[in-house]
Design a protein around this nucleic acid. Structure first.
Length: 285
DNA sequence: CTCTGCCGCGAAACCTAC
DNA sequence: GTAGGTTTCGCGGCAGAG
């Protein structure tokens, strides 16, 4: 990645990974407090409902980014005023929870990183729905609705390990891998493993010179990952069978839609039956 | 039709070798 | 200090579930 993008001011002499030990005024101006204290002390329903009081500011803006802040509506100023630093509820201690499979949680301190990206305010030609907060336009109302979540201080999906909040379940799921150490994407060449596909692809390209055969934004073959043990399978059925046998109490099984579960169970029993009839036939021989 | 989960992209922050 | 690789995550697009 070109260093030209690394334009954020850093707090001299202080590792960003110990920001949570510093008072806010000593942090970089792009710091977004984790507000874990609030998360831990406030009733969860407050933190998890949309439109509630402030909690986690990450993603809500308030920082500066050189890359994409341009174009209509002065998004930078809009977001800055929108998201002043949230009232602090600092985390003096990492939340040492234990994951369902016994991982000691939060060996690392929770990290409040400033990942503020400004939107450009442009989104195609047929612009209809406009965000009043940052000026970004959307061609569909539902896209605007979803976008509005990113301005919301309250994150609906909280990490059980460190308390960090996310707008998206997948973002949370992806984040949790940093605690569980599950790295589903393995390099075939050197066996190094990564938590995200793009990390693997970046590695393959830079280290091994392997160019991906996918077009821009083309979806890759889905990899089904067991978040309990890191097992990966090529199909959902494969993963279901694994979880069913290895982690019967897994939330994955509860979350799997009844329709799909029934489908897979049918398939499972039918293959089981096939196996029985085959063995019976072999016995007759 | 809306909501939600998943995806890929891009970028900031971090790490480490030199 | 610099360069380059890695980690992490914000967010728009898309597709499936409800």
């Amino acid at each position: 990645m070109p260093k030209v993008f690394l334009v954020k001011r850093r707090n001299p002499g202080v590792s960003a990974r110990s920001w949570d030990e510093l008072p806010d005024e000593k942090r970089a101006d792009t710091y977004i407090p984790v507000s874990l204290g609030c998360l831990l002390h406030d009733p969860p329903e407050d933190c998890r409902s949309d439109g509630g009081s402030s909690s986690n500011g990450s993603g809500g803006g308030g920082g500066s980014s050189s890359s994409s802040s341009s174009s209509s509506g002065e998004p930078g100023s809009a977001e800055s005023s929108l998201s002043p630093r949230a009232p602090e509820c600092e985390t003096p201690e990492p939340h040492h929870a234990v994951s369902p499979d016994g991982h000691l949680a939060a060996k690392q301190h929770p990290v409040a990183r400033s990942k503020i990206k400004f939107t450009t305010g442009t989104c195609g030609d047929s612009v209809i729905h406009s965000c009043e907060l940052c000026g970004k336009n959307f061609h569909l109302q539902r896209m605007l609705n979803r976008h509005l979540k990113c301005h919301n201080q309250v994150k609906r999906h909280l990490c059980t390990f460190c308390g960090k909040g996310f707008n998206d379940t997948f973002d949370l799921k992806r984040h949790v891998r940093t605690h569980t150490g599950i790295r589903p994407y393995k390099c075939d060449v050197c066996n190094k493993a990564f938590t995200q596909r793009c990390s693997l692809e970046s590695h393959l390209k830079k280290i091994h010179g392997v160019q991906q055969q996918y077009a821009y934004k083309q979806r890759r073959d889905k990899l089904y990952v067991c978040e309990d043990c890191g097992y990966t399978g090529p199909t959902q059925e494969d993963l279901y069978l694994h979880v069913n046998s290895a982690h019967p109490g897994s939330t994955f099984l509860k979350k799997t839609s009844k329709k799909l579960a029934a489908l897979l169970q049918n398939k499972l029993t039918s293959t089981h039956q096939e196996g029985i009839t085959l063995s019976e036939e072999e016995e007759r021989k």
